[in-house]
Design a protein around this nucleic acid. Sequence first.
RNA 1: GGAACCGUGGUGUAGUUGGUUAACACACCGGCCUGUCAAGCCGGAGAUCGCGGGUUCGAGUCCCGUCGGUUCCGCCA
Length: 602
Amino acid sequence: MGFQRTHFCGELRAEHVGQEVVICGWVHRRRDHGGVIFIDVRDREGLVQAVFNPERLPVAEFAEAEKLRSEFVVQVFGKVHARMPGMANPNLATGDVEIYANKLVVLNEAKTPPFAVEARNGVDEALRLRYRYLDLRRPELQAALALRHKTTTLIREFCDQHGFWEIETPMLTKSTPEGARDFLVPSRVQPGEFYALPQSPQIFKQLLMMGGIDRYFQLARCFRDEDLRADRQPEFTQLDMEMAFVDREDILKLMEGLVAFVMEGTVGVKLPLPLPRMSYDEAMARYGSDKPDTRFGLEIYDLTDIVKDCGFRVFADTAAQGGVVRGINVPGAGDRFARREIDELGELAENYGAKGLLWLIVTDEGSRGGISKFFEPSKLNALVEAVGAKAGDLLIFAADEPQVCAEVLGRIRLFLGNKLDLIPEDTWNFLWVVDWPLFEYDDTSRRFQAAHHPFTAPIMEDLPLLTTDQEKVRAQAYDLVLNGVELGGGSIRIHRRDVQEQMFKAIGLSAEEANARFGFFLDAFDYGAPPHGGIAFGLDRWIMLLAKQSSIRDVIAFPKTASAQDLMSDAPAPAVEKQLQELHIRLNPEAVQGLKQKETSS
RNA sequence: GGAACCGUGGUGUAGUUGGUUAACACACCGGCCUGUCAAGCCGGAGAUCGCGGGUUCGAGUCCCGUCGGUUCCGCCA
């Protein structure tokens, strides 16, 4: 006969008045007046008030209602009534009605929860994670998961409409060099050998293109064994896409359509298309970041030519050694900032690798403080004009190699944007960053690495430089940035074996290594690989931004802590000896010792 | 691997310069109460101040270590 539920609690409205209904849910709050008892019943869709009146209920039934406590699971049978005049609750979507209960079934009792599901103050996140199933009952988290579902539904709808097939790729796959640290899975059947969990389905999606699938997408779980951040979990979800017979323009155009479709369907924002684009070089020069937040100003200016002969040796020497002097004008900060606040910027700059931060304050008469004494009036005028400064503004400078200047000033720019409250809410600034370098130099290994990944195609006219002038080679790569957050990135891929082999060589991978790691992949190029390209979006980050949260933990049902643990299930956990034996694994003495210590201390 | 901040009844917080009985709100338990909706009123129980050590006549408070959480740097093709 079924469970008999007729409605969600949260969906009852004036139009239901007069109907006999059955609702199921949790006791959110009870108000026991000795006679009449009010119970707010909560489910996924919201709250509704059920009224238990001793005059309308059998004694036994009313006695049952008196036992109700927070988080009891109940089924309430009753009739929807309009609230009496003046008794409506405007704070409740269902506030115009209430249910006159005529029968109550307690489906399950509940202990007093370790924290109130509707807590007025914040609850310690560790506690929330330990009892995640209680946390999930809270409206904020339910809204985030509903938004997540809506987003993936829209994605699937768009992808289907545009000919993308959703295809799963293996989770048990092969470790690849470069990139993040892999999670390894020991093989029982092949002693001493390991699978790796995918950092992304990159190679498989390219092989799908070689397999003639033409258009593929997947909401792919990815795994990277690196330290966590507010926007980084060891396992996360990418919207992974790949297309054959496309160039960069085709992909950007199609992806803009997808992004606009999702933005409109989730937060109701109509994005003006096409989305703005900026070259990597311009982003680094103007914003000091490869993912610029364009919601506020405080842009970076190159001032090398103006200041190199101003008489200040630091500037002159930097320029002479091929370095640059760049600066930011902080409007009004000269008047408002205490000396201590300026010094704080200097400390910040040193944290990010600058030798120091130089500054001066523009005044009606000229300038004061910091390095102002090195500027004669004409130089100062040129400077002030270049950055558009006026009296009361603070000018800050960094003098160093271009990359260091960009990095330092980019970070300070973000710090100041926050500190001065310059970042508008409810703004959705999307931006393509294009024309990336194909390589970046790695100081520790003293060689070039793929800036994106080693399957990214160079811009064809730069192909001759691939193994000779790596620093000059540009990539057919693009990143999508939203409000200073990297939402996704992709590229046109290499589809010729000789180019792919050159690429491996350029990043210092020997032919033997390349074959050992990617032989099967290189072989595939020999059998007719179509031109192709794609992109991957960080789904968790995207939904975090849509939900206006500051951590992806708030949009993931069961996230892990900063130390990569699940406080609810207590994963990871020691394996029993039998499992280890089957997997041909023996723990080293330090690990065994560590486990013992952990056991005694807990 | 490094740095910073946090840890006090079930929850959220206060706790002064180191001082005697650790305070408040909510929740919980009991009683009263028939229109509340963060119900109200009365009463009650509930804390070895994360853990370990040290300084001191005396430690929630100071010091060292450790565990847990968060944020950031490194790391994250």
